[in-house]
Amino acid sequence: MPTTDPVIEARNLTKHYGPHAVVQDVSFRVAAGQTLVLLGPSGCGKTTLLRMLNRLVEPDIGVVLVNGHDVRDQPAEQLRRGMGYVIQQVGLLPHYTVAENVAVVPRLLGHAPAAIAARTTELLGRLHLPPERFAGRYPRQLSGGQQQRVGLARALAADPPIILLDEPFGALDPITRASIRREFRELPELRRKTMVMVTHDVTEAFELADQILLLDAGQVQQLGTPRELLLRPANDFVRRFFAAEQLGLQLRALRLADIMAELPQASDTIILTYSESDTQPLSLTATIQEALAQLGQAAVPSLGESAEARVWVRPTETAAPADFLPLTYATLMAAFGYAVRRLGIEQP
């Protein structure tokens, strides 16, 4: 757990609709710059939980603190203007142009028109919506992916420190979804943001989360890092929830550091050394998935005794190129297999 004060803290949140409890006694903390993913099956209460954070839903019991202050201490509108909000259906104002949609919150906050225009142009450019083409368009003239990009730009326009996202990629086709998610992850804007995101997509959760809160029937099943949920599931529900995508998740959750002990000693056979022409070395924090992805792109050497694709690992931060370790598909997957067994993860 980070030691700094949490930016968002939920304490014992409970919400009933009629006799039915949709959220029961949920507590969590999100530190500055961290991403918390609310994960769970449909109807588990994750959206309700998210909407309590910006007071679109008021809890029956419990409090939400933002930067240590009860959210009820200020008008709901003011609170919301300090939090970006992105929803699955996007909800762009159909009678506003793209630029006007992006400018909604800065205008509410009374920013100068020139500053708003500059910010809008900057954001649209960064989200691959060239402003000269898109600024004057209306939402109905955009594709689903473009609309969601505008939705993101709108949430980011006033540069709020907190972003709430409710299945932001849920309505997109798989290809668009993957590409927008990648852009999203790489967006420098978001690096500094504290984010809470709702999803039911396990892969998405593992890709984006620092912490995952797994919910079922309004109750917390487990709160922890993706790796903790995968390697030390708190109960059967957690185990079953990840069972179907076990392998993919393991590839995302395990890092090179986890498998270093299982790698064959390179010096046993042929001594290979890293040269400048090779791909950038991977650090130990890279996931197995990322190592595989880089292997897939690596060129196969045409000469030499080992005609295999190869990437390099830097065993420590300060290691010299001479100490870099080579990885091939065979060595990587073998080590991954041993590591999984060692860590006691059950195979499906």
Partner: peptide, 27 residues
């Protein structure tokens, strides 16, 4: 009026009156 549009407008921090005047009434 599309519920998502109203929800988004509220979530962005429009007051009830602003939602009415800028979103619901024009639409």
């Amino acid at each position: 009026v599309d519920a998502a549009v109203v929800d988004a407008a509220r979530g962005l921090g429009l007051t009830d009156w602003q939602v009415l005047r800028r979103v619901e009434l024009p639409l």
